[in-house]
């Protein structure tokens, strides 16, 4: 019983939903602030993401007449729950609380794809043709980045001669012994490929194709309003807090001991987020076929090169 309560606490409060939501909102403030600075603007205040979300929670919900209302309304909550669960597993590995169950990397991968699926289901179920275009783009984007993302992560999994593990804590332990994966060529290549994939996973420019405001008017999210929209924003925040952490855990040795470790970890997170923001602000939106070509071409090649090098032990 105590174990169950502990588990639920991990999931709901720390380091799961509540913690990651807040962290994600802070990170999204950093995103907006840095963007504003790049664009010579002042940008919003630190409370802005919180205000946005609280406001959305208080608004009325408009349900499209043609929609599958239940699925349409449930999608953001499922997305939020799944992203939070993924966040919990990743952050438990970051904080080195307990040994994560074996094979949880695959579970995290799947859980992290559920928000995208929820966006797709929500967009398609809204009955809006523009939403359907957005859903189809999101799906194609998932197809595009999932292949190199998996390959890049496996580059770390198969780095050791024996005892390949799909467990996050196992990966952290492994890197504690053998040095971080970033110390190897394969790790660096995989990290770059995974970083690009995360940019797309987060739906940031140049891969915000599914929500292309000026083409299909927010795409899959076009019909969402009020709390449902708010929860999609929260899901994005949770993902923003999870994906950089996942990258650090898998490629960059996770969090070291003591306050110094925490500081270094925070710096690594910030660095990754800053890279996201800079890429976002120095590129136009790609076309969906360009994105497909980009991910299935150079990025996949990069990821497979990393995988091959990892198997060879480089």
């Amino acid at each position: 019983m105590a174990e169950a309560i502990e588990l639920i606490f991990y999931y709901l409060v720390f380091p799961g939903l509540a913690f990651c939501t807040i962290l994600g909102l802070v990170l999204s403030f950093i995103d907006r602030k840095v963007s504003a600075m790049v664009q010579w603007r002042v940008g919003p205040g630190p409370g802005q993401p919180f205000f946005d979300v609280v406001k959305l929670l208080g608004k009325e919900t408009v349900v499209p007449e043609e929609s599958w209302a239940r699925g349409f309304l449930a999608a953001p909550y499922v997305a939020f729950g799944a992203a939070g669960l993924a966040a919990t597993i990743v952050w438990l590995a970051v904080l080195r609380i307990g040994g994560s169950p074996p094979g949880d990397l695959i579970v995290v991968l799947y859980l992290l794809s559920i928000p995208a699926i929820a966006v797709i289901v929500g967009g398609a179920a809204s009955g809006n043709p523009l939403g359907a275009v957005g859903a189809s783009r999101e799906m194609k984007l998932v197809m595009a980045y999932e292949l190199p993302f998996v390959a890049a992560l496996l580059a770390v999994v198969f780095q050791t001669e024996d005892g390949a593990t799909l467990s996050l804590s196992g990966l952290v332990a492994l890197q504690d012994q053998a040095g971080s994966a970033m110390g190897r060529v394969s790790g660096v290549l995989g990290f770059i490929a995974a970083l690009l994939c995360c940019q797309a996973k987060l739906g940031l420019v140049p891969f915000d194709i599914a929500e292309a405001e000026c083409e299909i008017g927010e795409g899959a999210l076009i019909e969402y309003s009020g709390p449902a929209l708010g929860f999609f924003k929260l899901t994005q925040a949770v993902q923003l807090a999870t994906l950089p952490a996942l990258l650090v855990v898998v490629f960059w040795g996770g969090m070291g001991p003591g306050p110094a470790g925490v500081a270094v970890f925070a710096l690594k997170m910030l660095l990754i987020v800053t890279i996201f923001v800079l890429v976002k602000n120095t590129n136009p939106r790609a076309r969906i076929d360009q994105a497909l070509r980009f991910f299935w071409g150079p990025v996949t090649a990069l990821a497979f090169a990393a995988l091959a090098l990892a198997v060879l032990g480089v």
């Binding site: 907006r32 010579w40 205040g45 927010e218 076009i222 019909e223 969402y224 309003s225 929209l229």
Partner: peptide
């Protein structure tokens, strides 16, 4: 940049569903 109403949290959105 010169006026930057995002300071006040104002955002232009693409769908009336998102708007206040």
């Amino acid at each position: 940049p010169r006026f930057d109403v995002e300071r006040f949290g104002v955002k232009l959105v693409g769908s009336p569903r998102h708007a206040d």
